[in-house]
Design a protein around this nucleic acid. Structure first.
Length: 599
RNA sequence: GGCCCGGUAGCUCAGCUGGAUAGAGCACCAGCCUUCUAAGCUGGGGGUCAUUGGUUCGAAUCCAAUCCGGGUCACCA
């Protein structure tokens, strides 16, 4: 149990024993960290009890304070300041916390529980390469998956590849007409980029054709429908669905290029998946569920044969589930995929990392499954995140106004190279080590930048302003870690010390304020990690880790570790920084950010 | 128009299950490297927490209304 939780329990216990005639609601107790300008570490707010107990805050505070000093081993003193009971934690408590945990390589983690969770993220279309917006999705999904794992869940990381449909036919038709047989091998262009180029080409040609038809007197709607290249794409989609051999071959070939490209991008980004679903395998699945829904009377069929659900009672609208011709729409296949996932892994929870533009879609999806009585419905959770936009507005693959993911990774790595070289700290590194270091810093900065803000907030990225490597960044945390490792090297302390290294340390004397601050901050890590999981929010870990690194830097500047006042102090401080490094490494590791031992 | 999300320092954001004088980073100004890595540290200026009302001992936080920005309501995905 975290210290904050212990304080709350203890306060509850005190109130129960001191005021036996009054029922105290546990939720009435509010425990905060004490503001730095007051003496104390944790504060119990007294106002909520004043009316209930018909006594002045000071009187209640004194009684609780005395009780806590006497009955718990946690506190050394208390102060009451205008309705706030400030409890000061014993130094000896802090020191025994350190002794108990500094070798604990599982600090903060929960034991594995029988709870299976799938996190679906990335889920790209195969007609274009990944862009900056996709990276927010990918890093979020990967981070949340790891955070859940650390909290004891059994996690399946899943990718659902949108490999069929009109969008891929657009790239295919443009490639057939204009590529002259170009392949990634013949051009040296990465497969996903090559295919993406023809997606852009399609839209250029399409735009021209539409303009031409409008000039020839057609109205816009008709022109859009009759443009030859669009008709060709639709014709190709029909052939694909009919199983046309040539079309399927080209489709498989071009998708193959894209997969190879994605694989490279994922690898570079340091992310992976346990399971990949392909929409070409799943797009027909939902029909059975629809039939089931019809049988149960949850769905209804209109005269033209189309199938609908009426969600008006839930404040929504009617929603189409099957077209008049019996073919699936987007949501139909999602119904099927939701069930497939559930059946494949017997999931307790299924997390969808999808942009907030699809909030309504997922809400409807969940509702339909619930109404049809599918057990997979309850576990569906939409991890909704805001879009990444450019200062000029949305990124549009169609128009080529995107920040490409591969380019962005490369740019960040080269930026970190530049700044490292500028600082003149490349001595003592081999070329290989430097390559790895630049990757760590560049990719770390990128991930941190995308994960440090609340997922549900949309963000604007200005490509003209490169991502900073100072201040609230991964680099800052990496630097603190490297500094710690440097001290540990000098003191011959392994980064993960053995159990006996400091066991002989006897706590005597007082802790300095900064020593205590650091220990108390480290102590909060398990709570922060649990919160990140509860809220599916990696930014919690960014804020926490940054604050810890900041605290370390302040400490580092104020007190020497190697030349501490005594051997005892030195050992104490070594333990503090060992735990600091280990917590930083773990927390950032969950976000896919690695911390160097030297930089 | 209905529903959903957001509005906090010049900029990017924390804080939002109500608690003390609203915090970081960037930018700006002034200091700190003969001492464990200055990618750092210390100090400074900078705020009607969109507006108005309500609930409360106490509101950036909860409620209502309004304003602004975004999303969504397709036989697209």
């Amino acid at each position: 149990m975290t210290l904050a939780a212990q304080v709350k329990h203890a306060a509850f216990d005190a109130l129960k024993h001191l005021f036996t005639d009054v029922q105290i609601d546990y939720n009435l107790i509010s425990v905060n960290q004490t503001k730095p300008e007051f003496t104390g570490n944790y504060t119990i707010v007294l106002f909520p009890f004043v009316k209930l107990l018909r006594q002045k805050p000071d009187v209640i505070g004194t009684q609780i304070g005395d009780y806590l000093l006497e009955k718990t081993p946690l506190f050394t003193r208390y102060d009451i300041v205008s309705g706030f009971l400030n409890m000061t934690v014993k130094d000896s408590y802090c020191i025994s916390f350190l002794l108990n945990h500094f070798t604990d390589t599982t600090f903060g983690r929960q034991c594995k529980a029988d709870c299976r969770v799938m996190v679906e993220y990335s889920s790209p279309n195969t007609n274009k390469p990944l862009h900056f917006g996709h990276m927010r999705n990918i890093f979020l999904g990967a981070a949340v998956a790891e955070i859940l794992k650390a909290n004891g869940k059994q996690v399946v990381k899943a990718n659902l590849i949108n490999d069929r449909g009109i969008h891929i036919c657009k790239s295919m038709i443009a490639w057939m007409w204009y590529a002259d047989g170009a392949t990634p091998e013949s051009t040296g262009i990465k497969g996903d980029h090559l295919v993406g180029d023809y997606y852009v080409k399609f839209n250029e040609v399409y735009k021209q054709e539409v303009a031409g038809l409008i000039a020839a007197g057609k109205d816009e709607k008709t022109a859009e429908k009759e443009a030859p290249i669009m008709q060709a794409a639709q014709d190709m989609l029909r052939k694909w669905e009919a199983g046309d051999k040539e079309v399927k071959e080209l489709w498989a070939r071009m998708n193959g290029w894209v997969y190879k490209g994605f694989e490279e991008s994922y690898k570079k980004q340091g992310v992976s998946f346990d399971k990949t679903y392909y929409e070409s395998d799943t797009y027909l699945l939902g029909k059975k569920i629809v039939e089931d829904g019809l049988r149960k009377g949850v769905l209804f069929r209109k005269d033209d044969g189309s199938v609908w659900i009426d969600l008006k009672d839930d404040g929504l609208d009617e929603k189409l589930l099957l077209r008049g011709d019996g073919t699936s729409v987007y949501i139909t296949q999602d119904l099927g995929t939701a069930k497939l996932k559930y059946d494949d892994y017997k999931l307790n929870q299924s997390v969808y990392v999808i942009g907030d533009e699809q909030n309504y879609h997922i809400q409807v999806l969940k509702l339909i499954l619930k109404k049809i009585g599918e057990p997979c419905a309850d576990g569906i959770f939409h991890l909704s995140y805001g879009m990444v936009e450019l200062p000029t507005g949305k990124m549009k693959s169609r128009e080529g106004t995107v920040v490409d993911a591969d380019d962005m990774v490369a740019e960040m790595i080269s930026l970190s190279r530049e700044q490292t070289e500028q600082s003149g700290k490349t001595d003592g590194f081999t070329a290989d080590e430097l390559t790895r270091l630049y990757e760590m810093i560049g990719l770390g900065a990128l991930k941190f930048y995308l994960l440090r803000v609340d997922p549900k907030k949309r963000m604007i990225f200005n490509p003209k302003e490169s991502i900073d490597l100072h201040g609230f960044t991964a680099t800052f945390i990496q630097y603190a870690h490297a500094r710690i490792c440097s001290i540990l090297r000098r003191e011959n302390v392994p980064i993960v010390p053995g159990a006996t290294r400091f066991q002989s340390l006897q706590p005597t004397g007082d802790l300095l304020p900064l020593e205590k601050d650091m220990i108390l901050h480290i102590e909060q890590y398990p709570g922060v990690l649990a919160e990140a999981a509860d809220e599916f929010n990696p930014s919690t870990l960014c804020n926490y880790s940054f604050a810890l690194a900041q605290l370390f830097n302040t400490f580092y500047d104020a007190h020497s570790i190697s030349k501490a006042e005594s051997e005892e102090k030195k050992n104490l401080r070594l333990m503090i920084i060992v735990m600091t490094a280990s917590v930083l490494r773990h927390g950032m590791g969950l976000l896919g950010i690695r911390l160097p031992e030297k930089m």
